[in-house]
Nucleic acid binder design. Structure first.
Length: 464
RNA sequence: GCUUCCUUAGCUCAGCCGGUUAGAGCAUCUGACUGUUAAUCAGAGGGUCCCUGGUUCGAGCCCAGGAGGGAGCGCCA
């Protein structure tokens, strides 16, 4: 009768000692002498390792030699109270099987720390490090919490298309999707590429946002959200941008800007609280290893109200600030990251929600205020991250929307269906977009967004 | 796309003013040690100094071009 495999997490928590167990995982380190060997095994279920103790005389030298850092092993033994300090329980090995060897001369990971830049080059192995194990478990917990929150609050999960036929959304450069041959595409009489010959019979792209389709669903189901991959072909080289990222976009009928802000704040606090409750060990590790203020900062976000003010008020604060800015502040221009950082990190020292931006620096679909100069936009700004959420109340008036589209050169023909939403049973509604990786960045305290997604996509890089 | 810094052992880095045989810590290997905790101690092996060209009696070091990476900015989530 074979014993079933236990996870390292379950064994470390177990109170039932003196029983036979089987554990399988990857060797982090092995040390000891010719009489006793200590093997640290990790299986990804927790950041902590299980200590396996092996009496060296009981195992062939060949087997122990293969139990090197990086190797995959299966261990059968007795779960016992540890004689040493540093762990409550350990496994006294009876049988050790090496499932997969790892040549120590060639295995790139060591028990000592590696730079995040180096680990980025071996993205196929970095999940086996403490850091990326912690980040990936947190990423999972946060993704799960997104669905949990929305489900508990009466939202429906909508799957918006990855391939879109419109490039009018104005959220940035798009990746083209085509099956036409790149070297000799069919041409029209006038010499242009003939997209009627393409797979979909028209130009298509990868989505930059599910919002417009989200609005369709919101004006039928009430409260909806999307959570899917999003693609931007911008040549962005920063620690906050990816070419492929995951975005969460709730869209709610009968919500105004105020309701939108309430939701954004409550949602973010829920997610951070969830991580604090479900992943204390991983957060403690990241706090100790990378950012001593991480846990304090997360708790602070949960405990305090976000500062809400209008763009106009923010401009006044920045104009009277003693700090010298590289870029001048002027009503009507978009705030630079140095301005946003000043408001969040220096002036208020807490998350900030900025609202009512000048209409000329925001998208066509945002609802115009009565002053005719500002729109009901909101940006949620976080310390170290900058803009984590961008959203707005949407323009529900057909004529006002058409006017804005004309002013901003958005073709009505392509978005006829979007205008139809205002033509038939229009309703006040609002929504926002939350960059999932920016959330993970904030919660983990990592410095670069390329380290919070398993396989980052950015200019000149699509390895793995 | 712009600005700026970097590239030397498997990893992290030092390398003086351009001068003989390029160093350290960790990792790896060998040995010692009967309970280790990033174990410790002793020893050994390990180099296309990113690439190409140039200057020079002589280049890891200076110059030009290229490649790769980081940080900041812009675009945004």
């Amino acid at each position: 009768m074979s014993v079933r495999r236990s996870s390292v997490q379950d064994l470390l928590r177990s109170q039932e000692l003196e029983r036979e167990v089987v554990v399988k995982g990857w060797v982090r380190t092995r040390r000891g002498n010719k009489y006793v060997q200590f093997i640290a095994v990790n299986d990804g279920s927790t950041i902590h390792n299980l200590q396996v103790v092996a009496d060296a005389e009981k195992f062939p030298e060949e087997t122990l030699k293969d139990v090197a850092t990086g190797a995959c092993v299966s261990v059968r033994g007795q779960l016992v109270a540890s004689q040493g300090k540093g762990q409550a329980v350990e496994v006294q090995a009876v049988e050790i099987q090496v499932l997969g060897k790892a040549d120590p001369e060639q295995y790139p990971l060591q028990k000592k720390g590696h730079s995040l830049e180096f680990l980025r080059e071996i993205a196929h192995l970095r999940p086996r490090t403490n850091t990326f194990g912690a980040v990936l478990r947190l990423r999972h917990a946060l993704a799960f919490a997104v669905h949990q929150y929305f489900n508990d609050h009466g939202f429906y999960y909508i799957h918006t298309p990855i391939i879109t036929g419109s490039d009018a959304e104005g959220a940035g450069q798009m990746f083209r999707v085509t099956t036409l041959p790149a070297d000799h595409p069919p041409r029209t009489a006038s010499g242009d590429v003939d997209y009627t010959e393409d797979f979909f019979g028209k130009q298509t792209n990868l989505t930059v946002s599910g919002q417009l389709e989200g609005e369709i669903a919101a004006l039928a189901l009430g409260k909806v959200y999307t959570f899917g991959p999003t693609f931007r072909a911008e040549n962005s080289n920063t620690a906050r941008h990816l070419a492929e990222f995951w975005m969460i976009e709730p869209e709610m009928a009968f919500y105004d800007l105020q309701d939108n802000m309430e939701l954004a704040e409550d949602f973010l606090k829920y997610l951070v609280r969830y991580a604090l409750e479900k992943c204390p060990d991983d957060l403690q590790f990241l706090n100790d290893q990378y950012d001593k203020e991480l846990l304090g900062r997360l708790q602070f976000v949960v405990d305090n109200d976000f500062q809400r003010l209008t763009y106009t008020e923010a401009v006044e604060i920045l104009k009277t600030a003693k700090k010298k800015f590289e870029f001048p502040v002027d009503w009507g221009t978009d705030l630079q990251s140095e301005h946003e950082r000043y408001l969040v990190e220096k002036h208020f020292k807490k998350p900030v929600i900025l609202t009512d931006y000048p209409k000329d620096i925001k998208a066509f679909y945002m609802k115009l205020n009565d002053d005719n100069r500002t729109v009901r936009a909101m940006d949620v700004l976080f310390p170290g991250i900058g803009e984590i959420i961008g959203g707005s109340q949407r323009e529900e008036d057909l004529e006002k929307l058409r006017t804005r589209m004309q002013q901003m050169n958005v073709p009505e023909e392509e978005l006829w269906w979007y205008l139809d939403l205002r033509r038939f049973g229009s309703a006040p509604h609002a929504g926002f977009g939350l960059g999932f990786e920016r959330l993970v960045l904030f919660v983990t305290g990592m410095g670069n967004i390329r380290d919070v997604i398993p396989f980052p996509r950015f200019p000149k890089n699509a390895e793995f």
